[in-house]
């Protein structure tokens, strides 16, 4: 089948290329763009390890065709830290508070939480748990993930108040 033209912005960079329409966004990101941060956990839209930000919304990139993402603005875990390498408050909080064990779910968790905190900067514990209900973790039991997101939310609101 004929390839289609692909134009999108990924982590602030314009990308122009072609791809086979059957390519899933996760494969395009990992194999074509060498962005191996987003993971493939289940490949069945359940685990959220493949979560990326698409036009300001969290989506599961294993269930999006590359053509559907044409024209979109994509942010992956690689685009969340600052350009000089300073970690985002969420990344720092996960690191400080044992928000990960094996780390497999972490890129999806942080990318999801990154959007959640923009939609709801001061979430309750329950709102965090519902907010990350599309992301599975097989290691942590979620306690420290929720705690890390709470701490990052506080950190971000202090930062905002200071600015």
């Amino acid at each position: 089948m004929s390839d289609i033209k692909i134009n999108m912005t990924i982590n602030g960079q314009a990308v122009e290329t072609t791809a086979d329409p059957r390519t899933l966004l996760i494969h395009f990101l990992r194999e074509d763009q060498n962005l191996t941060g987003p993971h493939i956990g289940c490949d069945t839209s359940h685990c959220g390890a493949c979560t990326v930000d698409m036009n300001g919304k969290s989506v599961k990139s294993c269930t999006v065709f590359v053509g559907q993402a044409n024209g979109a603005d994509i942010v992956t875990i690689e685009g969340i830290a600052e350009a000089d390498g300073t970690l985002h408050a969420l990344q720092e909080a996960f690191r400080q508070n044992h928000g990960l064990q094996c780390g497999f779910c972490t890129p999806g968790m942080i990318t999801r939480a990154y959007r959640l905190l923009q939609e709801n900067p001061n979430p309750t514990e329950e709102e965090i748990r519902y907010g990350i209900s599309g992301n599975l973790c097989r290691c942590t039991g979620y306690q420290n993930i929720v705690k890390s997101i709470q701490i990052a939310a506080e950190e971000l609101s202090h930062k905002e108040a200071a600015e």
Binding site: S45, G48, T51, K57, S58, V59, K60, T63, V64, R112, L116, Y130, G131, S133, G134
Partner: peptide, 9 residues
């Protein structure tokens, strides 16, 4: 229905 990511699409 499903979860936040799925409901976005």
């Amino acid at each position: 229905i499903a979860d936040p990511q799925i409901r976005n699409l």
